[in-house]
């Protein structure tokens, strides 16, 4: 296994005013936790909990969810620590706290490690050690396997690394049910297959950014046309896979309708991305696919949440 190296010292653009004193405010530390990713983690984990109708006290479920969120934030923090050098050269990420000189790399590392250990131990104490072990695996997978290894070494980085983002429903089900069931494995598979078309659509638009940072994203390594084909293939698998909850009986009528319409929307945009290859229209449709993919995943999980948490579940079969 090759661990890529980074160069943190070259990237900090502003000197620290008082040596040894943090210059970051509370919002900077919060930003280290990648709040938007944390929201996705909480949301998908919550759905992983409600679809199995667990027999646990709501306080225990809430505390478990909180620890999963903090664990997710901690892995984001460790990712920002490691990737500070490439964050500094990408327009999308150069204002993050470490490249902006607001938080020292060592502080971010300590913060991330402390939150990682704390969230895993607390989840073990609050729920069970299977869930805690899975959360620890998720953090290590994202911070070490994805960030330190895959991201800088292979165009399959976000395919394999996407497993880390897909794990929260599995951790959540383990936390409230004490085991890992088919429901959370299917939710894992949906997020896993959703990740490549989602990120590659962005990579098509931001390929210059990734090239400058030296990240081997699919468009930079295999070319934009090959990426478009891959997006189409993954979407062709994703659209029917997203209906698996219906076949398994935990996705109801509303989910079947939303899943079918959303899947068709994803397919239509993926076909457009495959066909339009030049100029502004190609960039625009890739951007549209990126935006729609977020809405698509949100609607799938929100519908499952509504069906199970608010009692609007209507079975499709029988």
């Amino acid at each position: 296994m090759t661990i890529a190296t980074n160069s943190l010292t070259e990237t900090t653009t502003e000197p620290f005013a008082t040596p040894g004193l943090s210059q970051g405010d509370v919002a900077d530390y919060f930003a280290l936790l990648k709040p938007r990713v944390m929201f996705l983690v909480v949301f998908t984990a919550l759905v992983g909990m409600v679809v199995v109708h667990p027999d646990v006290h709501p306080v225990v479920a809430f505390a478990s969810l909180l620890m999963i969120a903090i664990g997710g934030g901690a892995s984001g923090c460790l990712n920002m620590w490691w990737d500070a050098d490439i964050d500094a050269v990408m327009t999308r990420t150069r204002k993050r706290p470490i490249p902006a000189g607001k938080i020292a790399p060592g502080e971010a590392l300590a913060f991330g490690l402390f939150l990682s250990a704390g969230s895993v131990i607390m989840l073990g104490l609050v729920s069970n050690w299977l869930a805690a072990g899975l959360l620890a695996f998720t953090i290590v997978f994202y911070a070490v396997i994805y960030s330190m290894w895959l991201k800088r070494s292979t165009p399959q980085n976000i395919v394999i690394g996407g497993a880390a983002g897909a794990l929260p429903p599995i951790v959540a089900q383990a936390a409230v049910a004490g085991h890992v069931g088919w429901e959370s494995i299917i939710l894992f598979a949906i997020i896993f297959m959703w990740t490549p078309p989602h990120f590659w659509a962005l990579a098509l638009v931001k390929s210059g950014d990734y090239a400058r940072a030296g990240i081997p994203m699919m468009p930079n390594v295999k070319g934009a046309d090959h990426t478009r084909l891959q997006i189409l293939v993954y979407t062709l698998i994703l659209a029917p896979l997203s209906l698996a909850p219906v076949a398994m009986g935990f996705g109801g009528l509303a989910y079947a309708i939303i899943g079918t319409l959303g899947g068709l929307g994803m397919l239509a945009l993926a076909v457009q991305v495959y066909r339009l290859r030049e100029g502004e229209p190609a960039a625009r449709v890739a951007q549209q696919l990126f935006g729609f993919s977020i809405l698509y995943l949100f609607l799938l999980f929100a519908t499952l949440l509504a069906e199970h948490a608010f009692g609007v579940f209507r079975p499709v079969f029988g």
Binding site: S22, Q23, Y29, V59, V60, A63
Partner: peptide
């Protein structure tokens, strides 16, 4: 000012943690 805000955030987080452990203990 920033140090005061950080200290306040740490205090609130620790207080929240104590409360969480108490409530979870009662619930379990």
């Amino acid at each position: 000012k920033r140090r005061r805000q950080r200290s306040l955030a740490i205090a609130l987080t620790l207080g929240g943690l104590v409360l969480l452990i108490f409530v979870v203990t009662m619930a379990k």
